[in-house]
């Protein structure tokens, strides 16, 4: 097996988990690679830092808000300590920087990525989603981008409550009144900045698809999932792979027309009338990506292969009716380890 080293972010396997640990498990199970995993963490208590059977070494990296230069310098430092073949960033908020830096990361550090280009990435932004839907022939709930609180009061002319109030990067709250909308606006804007998005609330069943594209228009793999149990943060605690050809067709069309490179997750509502509304495109693997592996499609492995320039044949089947059930687990960590990551930024 080929020995490679892959850096992964999103080690926060907490109640609202990042995808990192699932991506790492997928890579650990690869039949073609023998991987060394470099964890890249933002905070000192991300569980992945302490999961030594999954993560070989972790380095703290600067928050995306501190800018690209700092990230580049930190990656250069890590490169002086470690060989890294591929980086898989797993947070929405960091993707902008990684996409913009991808050429430099390749040229200066010799590390490959497999990310959508900036146009594709920006176009699927929640702020631009209506436009996106029109362009690619996909139904999207009506939405409005909101820059100040005064605009909230004008919403009732165009929308009916309930509404979804969403942050630019993360967070979404369903609100049932103007007062709730104001509270949600303040909370989300203070955390993620402006604008925020008000979106028509479409009633129906939520289904999700995790998919991966080759950047030339081909769909390499896709697994649809129906959430079985949802936490109070709206995250799937359990989900089951489903057989839905309409969903797969929609995913394939999207891949063809956007030429998406890398992983993504589609959040979709299926109404009683069997209409599919695209709520959101998350431009990276979801936290439940390991279900795809369990169903026979190892998307992270495919991504790494494509990042390294290999051609990957599309997956054609997956097992329907496989469940994932998430669980929490208390690790025992020595203070020495916390001290080390806190003061030296490495563990």
């Amino acid at each position: 097996m080929k020995k490679i080293s892959v850096a992964v972010t999103g080690l926060n396997a907490i109640d609202s988990p990042g995808p990192g640990i699932s991506v790492i498990r997928a890579l650990r199970e690869s039949k073609v690679f023998d991987v060394r995993i470099i964890g890249l963490s933002y905070e000192t208590l991300e569980p992945g830092i302490y999961m030594h059977d999954l993560v070989d070494k972790t380095y703290q990296v600067p928050l995306p808000s501190t800018g690209m230069e700092l990230l580049m310098q930190r990656l250069a430092y890590i490169c002086s300590q470690e060989k890294m073949d591929v980086i898989i960033p797993n947070f929405d908020a960091e993707l902008f920087n990684y996409i913009k830096l991808s050429d430099r990361i390749k040229k200066e550090l010799g590390i490959s990525t497999f990310l959508p280009d900036l146009d594709a990435f920006e176009a699927r932004h929640k702020v631009n989603l209506s436009e996106y839907g029109k362009k690619h022939g996909i139904r999207v709930p009506k939405s409005k981008t909101i820059f100040n609180i005064a605009e909230l009061s004008t919403l009732k002319q165009e929308f009916e409550y309930p509404l979804a109030i969403k942050g630019k990067f993360y967070d979404a709250t369903i609100v049932y009144s103007y007062e709730q909308a104001v509270a949600a606006f303040n909370k989300i804007a203070s955390k993620w900045g402006l604008p925020i998005i008000a979106q028509e609330f479409v009633r129906g069943e939520e289904v999700n698809v995790t998919a991966i594209g080759d950047g030339k228009g081909a769909l390499i793999g896709a697994v649809p999932m129906k959430k079985q149990y949802i936490t109070d943060k709206g995250k799937a605690w359990s989900g089951i792979s489903i057989d839905d050809n309409k969903l797969l067709d929609m995913t394939r069309r999207l891949m063809t027309s956007t030429k998406w490179r890398g992983g993504l997750e589609l959040e979709i509502v299926k109404t009683d009338a069997e209409e599919y509304y695209l709520l959101e495109i998350n431009p990276r693997f979801p936290a439940w990506i390991y279900l795809a592996v369990g169903c026979g499609q190892n998307h992270p492995e495919a991504l790494v292969r494509m990042a390294l320039g290999e051609t990957v044949k599309p997956f054609t089947t997956y097992e329907v009716g496989k469940l994932f059930v998430r669980y929490s687990y208390d690790m025992i960590v020595d203070l020495k380890e916390f001290e080390k990551i806190s003061t030296s930024g490495e563990l």
Partner: peptide, 20 residues
Amino acid sequence: IALSDTGFVFDPSTGNSFST
């Protein structure tokens, strides 16, 4: 309190840690 050369300070009575 526990002190380490790296400037890590741990207060066992409160569980808080600090850096100096």
